[in-house]
């Protein structure tokens, strides 16, 4: 079983590597959205630094969400997804492999890119570790929750927009706790509670979402 899962993980990562163009898009998107904010709102660094956590968070989540549309799409189209649902390895674990590798190739790079962009928005440097930590947790939760949405919309031609509509409202708590942790830190207030709530949501999503994703795939693939 571990062997099969290792092979699944290797397949996902090597496929991501071979579809490199898909990988770069979320990063470009992140960069563009964040640089549009100073242009659209104000170049005043003080105001920007106040907005920075929210802007970085929302932009990173949208970037990650846009790429989630492809989470199951290729496998659905070539028929690999059906085989995974029929596999003697529990499909929930296979799905979890897919989610984790999605995070490794999207959420993690976005997190790593965020310090650069936070400098452009004048976020205090001391907040950087917390920004990266919350973003890492947030994008992981998004990959987990979003996989349910991706599974629900996999058979649809214009799934991407629908996926955003379905998932974003569910994601409000994560955005609130993530951004308020950073803001609290910057303002010298306690921030551990927000961070632990963020962690709790991520853990909950980790447990629940593979099951719901497979249930959703049973509906959309097993039509």
């Amino acid at each position: 079983m571990m062997l099969a899962l290792a092979q699944m993980m290797r397949r996902e990562l090597s496929l991501a590597n071979r579809r490199r163009a898909d990988l770069a898009n979320p990063l470009f998107f992140f960069l563009i959205v964040v640089s549009l904010f100073p242009i659209g709102v104000t170049p005043d660094l003080e105001k920007l630094s106040e907005m920075a956590p929210g802007v970085l968070w929302v932009a990173a989540l949208l970037a990650s969400l846009l790429s989630l549309d492809l989470l199951f799409r290729h496998d659905y189209e070539d028929g690999s997804l059906e085989q995974m649902l029929l596999s003697s390895v529990p499909p929930q674990l296979l799905v979890l492999c897919k989610i984790l590798s999605h995070w490794l190739v999207t959420g993690l790079p976005l997190t790593l890119l965020s310090p650069l962009l936070s400098v452009m928005l004048a976020l205090p440097g001391s907040a950087l570790p917390l920004l990266m930590l919350t973003l890492a947790l947030g994008t992981l939760t998004l990959s987990l929750l979003g996989s349910i949405g991706a599974a629900l919309t996999v058979g649809l031609r214009k799934g991407g927009l629908l996926l955003t509509i379905l998932i974003m409202p569910l994601f409000v708590p994560v955005i609130i706790f993530g951004t308020s942790a950073i803001q609290a830190f910057v303002n010298g207030m306690p921030w551990v509670a927000q961070l632990s709530l963020l962690g709790a949501i991520a853990a909950g999503a980790f447990v629940v979402s593979p099951w719901l994703t497979v249930a959703a795939l049973d509906v959309t693939v097993g039509d």
């Binding site: 349910i148 409202p169 569910l170 409000v172 609130i176 509906v219 959309t220």
Partner: peptide, 28 residues
């Protein structure tokens, strides 16, 4: 039929989330 089932799954995810959303919005 697919729409029915898909929406049912989404509604279940949503209903679990509603208390968390309310809590977080109050906090915010």
């Amino acid at each position: 039929e697919s729409g029915d089932r898909a929406a049912a799954i989404l509604a279940l995810v949503g209903v679990v989330n509603i208390p968390i959303i309310k809590f977080s919005v109050n906090w915010w």
